[in-house]
C-alpha cells in the first residue's frame, strides 16, 4: 500500500523500536480489499455470473484435490495393502500406531527443526540479498538471473547432482582435498552429525531464490519518496533499510514465512533423494512425508500411508490456522480458514 497516510505510521512505530520482522504488529494496513466487494445483495444475475466464472475451477478442484483427500481419510481407516479394494476396517488403529511410534515423533520433531531453521537462516539472508539485488548497479540483471537458477531446477535434478557431490567419496570432499582444506579429513556431510546442517544448506540453496523474488516484489511496493525524504534528513543507507524497508516489508515477510512453514512441514523430495529412505531417520532428517512414503507405498501399507497423510494434513492445517490467527490475520484475510471479513 503506497498511500501516504500508511507509511509514516509504520515508520513511527518502527522508531518506537518495534522493528520485529516476524509477527510485528506495526505493519501497513491489512489486505483491505477482500472485504471491499461493493454489491450488497446477491442478485440472480450475480449468482449466474459467480457460477459461470468460478464453477469450472471449483469442479476441477473438487475432483482432483478434495476427492483424493477425502479418499485418503477413508483408506486410513483400513488395513489395506493396495491389492484389491479395502475391506479390513480397523477404525482408528492406524492413528494409534502413528501417534505412538517414536520414529514418527522424531519425524515431526525434524519437521519443526527444519521449519525454525528455515525461517532463521533464509529470512535474514533473503532480506540482505534482496536489498543487494535491488540496488541500481551494473550487472545486476545477470546476477539476479543466476541467483534464481536453483529454484527453477527441479528437485529431482538437484537431488541427482547433490547425491553425487555429498557422500564421503563425492565431489565436495574431493574438492576440499584437492585444495588442501581440512587435510585428509573426509567430512561426512550426510552423517548424523552434519546432516541437519547439510540439509539446511541444501534447502537454503534451493529455495532462497523464491524468498528473494517475493521480497523484491515487496520492495517495489515501497514508495521511493520515503527514501528520498529520509536521505534529505540525513539517514544513512542502513538506517533507511532498518527504519523504512524492514517495517514496510512486514507483510511480504509474513507471507513468505507462511509459504516457508508449509514447505518445511511437507518437505519430501530432497531428503528422500539425497539421503535415501533408510538413512533419513538415523541421520536425523526424516520428515512426516518421508515417513509416509517409507511406511506407505514402499512397504505396501497403503491404509497406513494414507492415515499418515491425513495426520500430516491435519498438522499442516493446525499450524497454518495458528499462524494465520497469530501473525498473518492482518495480511491475508480469511485465506486459510474463516470467511470473516475485515474492513
Amino acid at each position: 500500500m503506497s498511500d501516504t497516510p500508511q507509511a509514516p505510521s509504520a515508520l513511527e512505530s518502527s522508531l518506537d523500536g518495534n522493528t520485529t520482522v516476524m509477527g510485528g504488529t506495526n505493519s501497513v494496513s491489512p489486505m483491505t480489499a477482500v472485504g471491499r466487494a461493493p454489491r450488497q445483495r446477491t442478485s440472480w444475475r450475480e449468482r449466474f455470473e459467480i457460477t459461470l466464472l468460478s464453477g469450472p475451477a471449483i469442479l476441477v478442484f473438487l475432483a482432483f484435490v478434495i476427492a483424493p483427500v477425502v479418499a485418503a481419510f477413508y483408506y486410513g481407516f483400513y488395513r489395506w495393502k493396495g491389492f484389491g479394494p479395502p475391506t479390513d476396517f480397523i477404525g482408528l488403529h492406524n492413528y494409534k500406531v502413528i501417534l505412538t511410534d517414536p520414529e514418527f515423533h522424531r519425524a515431526v520433531l525434524h519437521n519443526f527443526e527444519i521449519l525454525a531453521l528455515s525461517l532463521l537462516i533464509q529470512g535474514p539472508l533473503a532480506i540482505l540479498l534482496a536489498l543487494l539485488l535491488n540496488r541500481k548497479m551494473r550487472g545486476r540483471s545477470v546476477i539476479r538471473v543466476l541467483v534464481f537458477v536453483p529454484w527453477v531446477v527441479s528437485e529431482v535434478i538437484a537431488g541427482t547432482g547433490l547425491g553425487l557431490m555429498l557422500p564421503v567419496n563425492g565431489a565436495i570432499n574431493a574438492l576440499l582435498t584437492n585444495m588442501h582444506i581440512f587435510g585428509d579429513v573426509k567430512i561426512q556431510w550426510l552423517g548424523p552429525h552434519m546432516a541437519l546442517w547439510t540439509l539446511m544448506a541444501i534447502l537454503t540453496w534451493k529455495y532462497l531464490g523464491f524468498a528473494i523474488i517475493l521480497l523484491m516484489a515487496g520492495l517495489q511496493n515501497i514508495p521511493e519518496e520515503l527514501y528520498e525524504a529520509a536521505s534529505i534528513d540525513g539517514a544513512s543507507y542502513w538506517q533507511q533499510q532498518r527504519r523504512i524497508t524492514l517495517p514496510l516489508l512486514g507483510p511480504t515477510i509474513r507471507i513468505w514465512a507462511f509459504l516457508s512453514i508449509i514447505g518445511a512441514l511437507q518437505l519430501f523430495d530432497l531428503p528422500w533423494i539425497v539421503w535415501g529412505e533408510f538413512n533419513v531417520d538415523r541421520d536425523g532428517i526424516s520428515t512426516m512425508a518421508t515417513y509416509m512414503a517409507h511406511y506407505g507405498p514402499r512397504t505396501g501399507l497403503y491404509g497406513y500411508g494414507n492415515a499418515v497423510a491425513v495426520v500430516l494434513f491435519i498438522i499442516s492445517m493446525i499450524v497454518a490456522v495458528l499462524y494465520q490467527r497469530l501473525v498473518l490475520s492482518r495480511d491475508v484475510d480469511g485465506a486459510v480458514t474463516d470467511g470473516r471479513k475485515k474492513r
Binding site: V65, A72, A293, N306, F313, S316
Partner: peptide
C-alpha cells in the same frame, strides 16, 4: 496443505 505427493494413490 495437501501436496500431490501425499495424494498420489
Amino acid at each position: 496443505m495437501f501436496p500431490i505427493t501425499v495424494a498420489i494413490t
